[in-house]
Design a protein around this nucleic acid. Structure first.
Lengths: 367, 367
DNA sequence: GTGAAAGCGCTAACAG
DNA sequence: CTGTTAGCGCTTTCAC
């Protein structure tokens, strides 16, 4: 028969119950050695008996640290970010910190409010996937002594630590792979977000084309309109890429129809696949395509999708480690780390036609 | 030229700069009316000038509330939970609270540690997706006066508020739909987690079968082994269902091969689809199948998947609202809400064969 | 080894 | 209207 919400027990409750001073109780619980074994035992017993839990607020106030890190992220429904959240939370908790979560939905306004929240909450540091459109508010956070680690997208102006994915390389490899497979008239379908990840993928695409001696006209790089600011929307719907591709395939192509598509994420590939099927274009026979992200479904499509697997967990873990190092170390130069993604070759580019018996590894760094 | 981390400005800095008392400054900033307009203006100007940000820690300590809610969730990589996180964070922030995130990965141990963290952090309340295997630690949290709202899975023993999805109904409708389409030898592929959501879906399946006058033998309800405790794994890999289905389809079926599959999530359906394709079984010709969750890819499979769409955003929002109401109201009876999911009929059960021009709505309550 | 005193930054009482 | 006093729960001096 449980009682209603009793007032929470404090050090003083233990102290008075045992006829000790609050101070002694604090030290007994804090495992300092300036307490007799007997006292310590008594204190710990009483603490356990009344269910004492230290008040982090008070503790933080005097210690000047809340043992809390912030995580500012754009969209948890993006599988990459979902994994990032998991890996970051795990690491943060393992190091004895708490995690404050802020979601920005790609909105600068939300991000500005998020920085306010970080400042007020006096977090010890923050892992941030920046919206990138503006960053003055981040300067303010950094200047107030809260170390920042940017993840996935950088804000070089601030000279903070950064850990991301080598998107350019992933895109380069995907493109080169298509070219190696015989594709010549390639198209890149990209997100229309004004962020570096997209820009890097475009760069990779162009570089691969150039290295193969292929020209890239402007209409070979296409931005798919996305519902980026719809706060509860999924990262991207295949829908948008589907409609976009429908139009694209209908348009006149002076040099012949495209025979290869590089897409900026697996959802685009999904929509594209449908549009191609509707025009009776075979994949990979008529058109080869690559995705980006290796979402959990990619290997299980009817035409398994060649795609770029992102090391989400590694990125998250590295970010937390960088942050904690900086909390301890202080003023080193900012470190930037790009982790290399992995091209996973499947049937959509003529790879193994279906699942072989070799098990697809759903490794610790999937999606 | 930014300076290094200055000590953070406090009320006293403003007070001394203006020759006022700390108290007056506090009230001026707090919009109390017991301050002259002139003083308030001066204070606010100075606060803005030095970039004053109130210290939530100190504020919380005296006020007895940290204006923070906890969110304890099992697996952010499950698209349903990802959306839940988004919607909850949005609502929580809109109400002026912060959100502390704890991930349990379906582990009771993690959950117990999470409750410790909630107690220490003195959150005002928590939204919880419980692991359900044990719940004594939750009793402790509740007894210490922290209101809890269980989401998606209930712990009826504790008499807390709860908001979930009517999984039984979703499963009932999916099953009935298959039966209406002519399927008779149905199989249910379920998660092997010991949780009520799975149990509810099984109940719905059995009830639909019974209502149609069909018997259900034990081997018609199958649990797919999953990597549930793999901390960074995705919710479920299609892989497991694929292998499981391979075996299943190889086994002798005295009453003929199954002509319908109800699956507990869309990933299972994905694996199943491949296993069926390998045996040249046509969907929906030979076998009709349904998924559960309406993940973003479901509508875009080569055979678009009939599935049960879950109202994730609505669940999340409702949960936060219930929690905040209870924070204000105090002792009402616990309220339990089940939100109804929606069966989305597609080609895998003989629905519209492909995307029609009627736009698939990626509504605010998808996946 | 233990206690008394002071203070983290803020807000709530009460005076004036 | 404003200042003084007190205290949130805890930890860190510094005496004893």
């Amino acid at each position: 028969m449980t009682e209603g919400p009793r007032p929470r027990p404090t050090l003083r409750d233990i102290a008075t119950a045992l006829g000790l001073s609050v101070n002694t109780v604090s030290r007994a619980l804090g495992d300092k050695d300036s307490v007799s074994a007997a006292t310590r035992a008594a204190v710990q017993a009483e603490a356990a008996r009344i269910g004492y839990v230290p008040n982090t607020l008070a503790r933080s106030l005097v210690l000047g640290s809340a043992m809390t890190l912030g995580l500012v992220i754009t969209n948890p429904s993006n599988p990459f970010y979902a994994q990032l959240i998991s890996s970051i939370e795990l690491r943060v908790r393992a190091q004895g910190y708490s995690l404050l979560l802020l979601v920005t939905d790609e909105s600068v306004e939300n991000e500005q409010r998020a920085t306010e929240a970080l400042l007020r909450s006096a977090v010890d540091g923050a892992v941030v996937v920046p919206v990138q459109a503006e960053w003055d508010h981040w300067r303010r956070v950094r200047d107030s002594g809260i170390p920042l680690v940017f993840v996935n997208r950088d804000v070089p102006e601030l000279g903070c630590d950064m850990v991301g994915v080598d998107y350019e390389r992933g895109s380069y490899e995907a493109t080169s792979h298509l070219i190696a497979g015989g594709a010549r008239r390639l198209l890149l379908l990209e997100e229309d977000l004004p962020i570096t990840t997209t820009a890097d993928r475009i760069t990779g695409f162009r570089r691969a084309m150039a290295d193969a001696g292929l020209k890239v006209s402007d209409d070979q790089v296409q931005a798919v309109p996305t519902k980026r600011y719809d706060s509860l929307a999924l990262p991207w719907q295949p829908e948008e890429a589907y409609r976009f591709a429908q139009t694209l395939l209908t348009d006149a192509h002076p040099d012949g129809h495209p025979d290869g598509f590089v897409t900026g994420n697996d959802y685009f590939a999904l929509g594209l696949l449908r549009a191609l099927a509707e025009r009776d274009l075979a994949v990979p026979g008529d058109v080869a395509i690559t995705g980006y992200g290796d979402h959990p479904y990619a290997a299980y499509l009817q035409t398994p999708l060649t795609t770029v697997r992102l090391p989400a967990a590694e990125v998250g873990t590295t970010a937390v480690d960088l942050l904690l190092q900086r909390l301890r170390a202080g003023t080193e130069r900012p470190r930037k780390t790009l982790i290399r993604p992995e091209l996973v070759i499947r049937a959509s580019t003529g790879g193994p036609p279906a699942l072989t018996n070799r098990q697809e590894q759903p490794s610790s760094t999937p999606g």
